[in-house]
Nucleic acid binder design. Sequence first.
DNA 1: AAGTCGGGGCC
DNA 2: GGCCCAGACTT
Length: 371
Amino acid sequence: MDKSKYFRQKLLHWHHTINERELPWKGEKDVYRIWLSEIILQQTRAEQGLKYYERFVNQYPTVQKLAKAPIEEVYKLWEGLGYYNRCRNLHATAQFIAVELKGKFPSTYETILELKGVGPYTAAAIASFGFGLPHAVVDGNVFRVLSRYFGIDTAIDSTEGKKLFQQLAAECLDTTSPAFYNQAIMDFGATVCKPDLPDCLNCPIKGKCTAFEQQLVNELPVKAKKNKIRSRWFRFYLLMHDGKIAVQKRTAKDIWSNLYEFPNEEYASEKEWKAADSSSTELWLKKNNIKRTYQQLSATKAIKQQLSHQLIHGVAVAVQLNGKQVLHSNREWKTVKELKQLPFPKLLNDFLKAGVLELFTWKHTTVNQKT
DNA sequence: AAGTCGGGGCC
DNA sequence: GGCCCAGACTT
């Protein structure tokens, strides 16, 4: 028996016998829900995406409901999940399907692939799970399982590697039940052929696994590029005036695009950021045309957030404003209640949770002007 | 082909 | 601290 046939048969038998992961999108027939789950699960662990999937299905049971929802509301539901462009594309695609396609989901691999936010993996997943079409998924699990089983050290993040593993995946695919097969290989990668401490002793395909034979399990798959982490330093200003807080939307092509934040200054180095003090605050207020009728309150201690590609440091400074104040056109005053309806990055929610707002005296009274 | 985009969990 | 996760998009 050839190696890919052995792989397919053992894998299918394993999945018929063992089904450790009970997840709500498994066996789902509604293409809208299949698409929704796949977008949520991109670069996201199933356990992490679970509550977001439940949330979205509950709030938007149909693609029409999602299409009609205000984008801000959708972002708020997505808050904390990361990769926020997924959310923007999700909403845009919902509108495209609901309006342009009159609610009818595209039903071929090529047309599914044209949807915003849908790449080769997601198109194959929707085609197979939603329409039973013979397209093999290639996600992180598949790269790992195939590279180990076939003993292939071609880098999975190279153009050559992507092409190679896609072909290999297609050869192994069970074309008579592509959905079941795709589900099987991903489940297998997640529960047996794991990145760390794979369960090789109980592996159903260890009899022909090259990595197992040659003790290369921990060397595969190979990734060419190393992850670089950039450090960034922010000083956030929480401006309070008349019982409201100033917020602005992040519009740049940068992290947290389309989420809200507090007016801030980014520093080029840790040294400058650490050196910033109350005189830095005064300077910033002047630059931002904020009148000198304020009381500067104590800054919170610095907090940081470790992301996969950035290490972000932030400090929050609370400033209570008095008198008449006019904000930049891109900034808005929001009550705490309104604030809670807006999507914020985790770092800023951490500031709010840490009690930054409690630094203010929530009274609409005149405070002595600082001189 | 390389860079960028989050947040969480594991060792 | 480093790697990975049901990847896709931009440059």
